[in-house]
Design a protein around this nucleic acid. Sequence first.
RNA 1: UGUCCGAUGGUGUAACUGGCAACACGCCUGAUUUUGAUUCAGGAAAGUCCAGGUUCGAGCCCUGGUCGGACAACCA
Length: 553
Amino acid sequence: MTEEKSLNFLEEIIENDLQAGKYKKIITRFPPEPNGYLHMGHAKSICLNFGLANKYGGYTNLRFDDTNPVTEETEYVESIKNDVKWLGFQWENELYASDYFSQLYEFALKLIDKGLAYVDDSTSEEIAAQKGTPTQPGKDSPFRNRTIEENKKLFLEMKEGKYRDGEKVLRAKVDMGHINMHMRDPIIYRIKHAHHHRTGDAWCIYPMYDFAHGQSDAIENITHSVCTLEFIPHRELYDWFIKNLDIYPSHQYEFARLNMTYTVMSKRKLLQLVNEKYVAGWDDPRMPTLSAVRRRGYTPESIREFCEKIGVAKRENLIDVGLLEFCVREHLNKISLRRMVVFEPVKVVITNYPEGKTEMLHGEENPEDPNAGSREIPFSREIYIEAEDFMENPPKKYFRLAPGQMVRLKSAYIIKCENVIKDANGNVKELHCTYIPESRSGSDTSGINVKGTLHWVSVQHAVAIETRLYDRLFKVEDLSQAEGDFKDYINPDSLQVLPAVYAEPAILQAKIEDRYQFLRKGYFCLDPDSTPGKLIFNRTVTLRDMWAKEAKK
RNA sequence: UGUCCGAUGGUGUAACUGGCAACACGCCUGAUUUUGAUUCAGGAAAGUCCAGGUUCGAGCCCUGGUCGGACAACCA
């Protein structure tokens, strides 16, 4: 049976193009500007562009849109390449818009020759004033009718560095009365005496986005140039340049960018969070950047699955971060090894267990994966359990530990709470329990059935580790609808550090970026800040918790 | 006042291109469970922005509205 999954609108376009014989092969590109780190929104675009090419047997170029030397850096190039690879994609060619600076310059000359571009001496304020408004037409620049010869001479002089930044620009000569603002003689080259991360000081004029992107697409024979909705008004210009330059007719298609609840996704805002120290850096696990979610413990598989699930369309959307969490739990449940870690300990003394005795019990590494094997867990007379797993006066459906009640210790024995020892202030100090020797995990002949199973750690074998618990960075669901500064909505409790919690000794095997499920607690990932003496774990996501919901009622 | 884009359960995406709205997340029940996890079974939830029209039949087509978004950086 071939359960055909329905196509998104881009797949539909491509299949039609292919059927019509318009292309033999699909070529797409992922075109980041190297001025920041990649985030989840980019992940959507990456999965889309590479996914389309994969599906239809073509390829994808990685092209850095590096036409603005003042904001772009090699550091970003490296992180971007690293993130794309980590996500699981391989580009056909690593390219740069700056590779095409000479060709782009020739293109500009061609436009001048055709009388379709001119050098303008107006200031940026004057040009802005000439533009008009969306509802009022613009006015021609006084320099609009320079001769072709004069324009060529001036443009050459711009290139040769004869002018200062801002003194002159090259503009396309389209139509200042055009209904589309982008067609009102857009600037296509500006002077910037700045050092470029790749071309160094070879150039002092740089093409604008509109004069670089479509042309780069054409040079690379990109068949389907996929970008986000805000570029819709640019498409007319994109096509205008292709037509007038008579170059390969790439086509631009637009889809709606990803928005997530409780999250900001603009590079500008993310940069602000970093610069103003609201977070520790681009890879702070609370950030939506790929380097951050990687550090937090998200897997590339789960992110790809997420991108698959959210779909692609043209309408604006706000995706519940809960869906991302679902995807990551789904994957981590299958692959992560299990460990027991007690966050807020209460000591339990098993009064009928021999003093000084230690026995090694066996626990499955991962019950979802029979091949994962098992680990040894030391058991002894004194153990820690989670404080919230004991209640002196439990509500009706509480099936954890309480006076007189029995619970199973995971992979160990059933115990019964006999005595509650309190300190002078009446706080629970320790619990005295008895264990059922015949109830040992795997060879239980006790015949006793208990409802609750708790995680635990042997006191004398416990290993102290640090855990960092993350919550959403913002307090409101939809930041785009929030009034005022987005930083006013930052969640002050987005990070909770527990400097020392108690883990079973098997935790010592952990290597950087290893992912575990801490039983009943959530998924955790070893942070690169860890040292051999001090392991630090980031909480990727909690487990679903029906009891927490029930207890609230 | 303009042009463009969009509108389907709470959220997102579908609907063989005109044949009585499906899938996923979330939510609620129940079963299983040595993780109140996982898994499994079931359920509630939109009549498709509105008003007309074409048609035997409209979420899909037409007309007119409404609402939301984008567009005036020497940013991309």
